Lab assay of single mutants.
Amino acid sequence: MAAAAAAGAGPEMVRGQVFDVGPRYTNLSYIGEGAYGMVCSAYDNVNKVRVAIKKISPFEHQTYCQRTLREIKILLRFRHENIIGINDIIRAPTIEQMKDVYIVQDLMETDLYKLLKTQHLSNDHICYFLYQILRGLKYIHSANVLHRDLKPSNLLLNTTCDLKICDFGLARVADPDHDHTGFLTEYVATRWYRAPEIMLNSKGYTKSIDIWSVGCILAEMLSNRPIFPGKHYLDQLNHILGILGSPSQEDLNCIINLKARNYLLSLPHKNKVPWNRLFPNADSKALDLLDKMLTFNPHKRIEVEQALAHPYLEQYYDPSDEPIAEAPFKFDMELDDLPKEKLKELIFEETARFQPGYRS
């Protein structure tokens, strides 16, 4: 834990890192770190609560700039109880001085990944967590956004079992017609939660990839272990087919990539493993919904509104309290091709509203 900075004593240090967030945020305490930044909790002297502050230093890398800009653009436009918001952003007053960006968010005690390492969940908890994931996802999908990296560590939890989806750095506007060349190379989302079509096709992607990830998360809540822990690309596919069985001819016809289709045709026939054999203690309604989410063919996979209306979630289902976005989200430009200098300018502009004396 960093010592509390005395008023006016300059930035606090946390594990050798400068955290320049005073005077409003003090009493910093280390939480963890990701690929390009550290997260601390801090005391907000204005709202009198502890908050989470993520320090991001992305400006050396085009990919990190892209992810940072995506996350900020999306989260500043989203407003939903099951999606983490941005409360404040701290950065230098000029673009030349801006080396880091500090993002202030609600402090959540833990995440689903940490929880599943230590606790076996009751059916009631599984049901409530799944409902909140789908409630947040309904809003995301209504904005025409794909999260693309749903996994237990991106689901934040607090002691009252509130759940918030975080990390929109890989999110995209849904565009089933656009052929994202190089899709697989830039697709760094965790393999275990990846839909089979991501490994088999490169053309376009749809909201059904997020539903697949939610199915993987439900299976993990039922058993405290990942359902498809593939060691590499082909191993991942083999794990999936080992449980779902061989795809039907109709399902194979959806695979545009001939090499991928021929690979699947070359494999020995596998039978589907019954879900109640894998999860003998699970609620039968939970397994019915799991089956509809972990469907090989993305066109037959359940959609988020149908999933919310499934009998497993009937005690929570309330369409009048499951809000959607006001308007579909649009990125003005494809960020993939922009140089990091341009992305830095866009991050600077996007964060201006939090600067003292800002006038829109």
Rank of each mutant, 00 (worst) to 15 (best):
A2W: 00
A2Y: 07
A3N: 11
A6R: 09
G8Q: 07
G8T: 12
A9D: 12
G10C: 12
P11I: 04
E12K: 13
V14R: 09
D20A: 11
V21T: 13
R24I: 02
N27Q: 00
N27E: 03
L28I: 13
L28T: 01
S29M: 05
Y30A: 00
Y30M: 04
I31N: 15
G32I: 13
G32L: 03
G34D: 01
G37V: 15
C40L: 08
A42Q: 11
Y43M: 06
Y43V: 11
K48T: 13
R50C: 07
R50K: 13
K54A: 04
K54F: 01
S57T: 13
S57F: 15
H61R: 11
H61G: 10
T68G: 07
I72C: 01
R77F: 11
F78S: 13
H80F: 04
E81H: 07
I83E: 01
I84N: 15
I84L: 10
I86G: 00
D88M: 01
I89Y: 07
I89W: 05
E96F: 10
M98D: 09
K99L: 03
D100G: 05
D100F: 11
Y102V: 09
Y102E: 04
Q105F: 10
E109Q: 02
D111Y: 13
K114L: 08
L115P: 03
L116H: 03
L116I: 03
T118N: 02
H120A: 14
S122I: 12
N123Q: 10
I126G: 07
I126W: 07
Y128M: 05
L130I: 03
L130A: 07
Y131D: 00
I133F: 14
R135D: 01
G136Q: 00
K138I: 14
Y139K: 12
I140T: 00
S142P: 00
A143F: 02
N144P: 04
L146S: 04
D149P: 03
K151T: 13
S153R: 13
L155F: 04
N158V: 07
T159C: 12
T159G: 06
T159N: 13
C161F: 12
L163M: 10
K164M: 07
C166A: 04
L170D: 06
A171I: 10
R172M: 10
R172H: 02
V173Y: 08
V173T: 09
A174E: 12
H180Y: 12
G182N: 09
G182W: 15
L184K: 06
T185V: 00
E186V: 13
V188A: 06
A189Y: 06
W192Y: 07
R194P: 07
A195H: 03
P196I: 01
I198V: 11
M199A: 10
L200Q: 14
G204L: 08
Y205G: 06
D210R: 10
V214C: 10
I217M: 09
E220P: 05
M221K: 14
L222E: 05
L222Q: 14
S223R: 06
P226Q: 11
I227M: 08
I227Q: 01
Y233L: 09
Y233W: 06
Y233D: 12
L237V: 00
L237M: 11
L237C: 12
H239E: 09
L241E: 10
L241H: 05
G245Y: 10
S246V: 07
P247C: 01
S248T: 14
E250F: 08
E250T: 08
E250W: 03
L252T: 04
N253Q: 07
N253A: 09
N257M: 07
L258W: 11
A260K: 02
R261H: 05
S266W: 03
S266Q: 01
L267C: 02
H269W: 10
K272C: 07
W275E: 07
W275N: 02
N276F: 07
N276K: 15
L278P: 11
N281R: 05
N281C: 10
D288T: 12
L289G: 12
L290K: 02
L294H: 03
P298G: 08
K300C: 13
I302R: 08
E305K: 12
A307R: 04
A309Y: 02
P311K: 01
Y312W: 07
P319T: 14
I324M: 05
E326M: 07
P328G: 08
D332A: 11
M333Y: 10
L335W: 08
K340P: 06
K342N: 15
K344L: 07
E345A: 09
E345F: 02
E350P: 06
E350M: 03
R353D: 03
Q355F: 02
P356H: 13
G357W: 08
Y358E: 10
R359Y: 08
S360I: 11
